[in-house]
Amino acid sequence: MLKRRIIPCLDIKNGRTVKGINFEGLRDAGDPVELALRYIQEGADELVFLDISATEEKRATLISLVERIAKHVTIPFTVGGGINSVAAVSDILKAGADKIAINSSAVKNPLLIKELAETYGSQCVVIAIDSKNLNGIDTVFISGGKIETPLETLAWAQKAVELGVGEILLTSMDRDGTKIGFDIPLLQKICSMVSVPVIASGGAGTIDHFTEIFQQTKATGGLAASIFHFGEIAIPDLKETLKTKNIPIR
């Protein structure tokens, strides 16, 4: 049986892992490759690297990091953050990433999805969607959650699938950083209406939150960052507990 995936997300700035602390700022959290290898050892099923520096000048730093990750990492990994052209995608895939995640650039130019899917195959194109509930309407935000768009989350997810994305990384901005649990109603809605895997992100604070998301929605993966970085949840404990709940886990 296909397993549900546990996915640690690493935020990258200038080639280093960073951790946000109480919204006050970013702390250097070391070498992304070392952290990645620790997660693999602990049983992570996949990794996501999100480049938050993501400017054109920093692209070269990112590419050389991706090359280094690919040399050492023995499981699939996705790279995202400020990717806005076929050329940038080409560089990142050539450097060894298995998938790329696009967000704002796809909202601004939806045909980029089609072009990427046709060039590289849907299996390596992930759409990252940041969603916030505004007066009862799930609304897509871009530019790291700073800019509201007129897009409704479900409609945008469906459009992205139609254009060729192979996976959706859905972050609930309402839950992100709260540790009160994944946004189950949002995940239920999106998972039941699209034909590609959906990764749940935003809100995980306890092992029970992962149990809930896998028992109550069809999300194929659960993504989290700080709870893994700060050791609040150990991946081996998480996976063992999920297994005892009869959730298919590697």
Binding site: Q123, G166, S195, T220, R250
Partner: peptide, 13 residues
């Protein structure tokens, strides 16, 4: 057959 998500993507035994 598309009776479940396609592609088959992830870990399986």
């Amino acid at each position: 057959p598309e009776t479940d998500l396609v592609p088959h993507m992830g870990w399986n035994h």
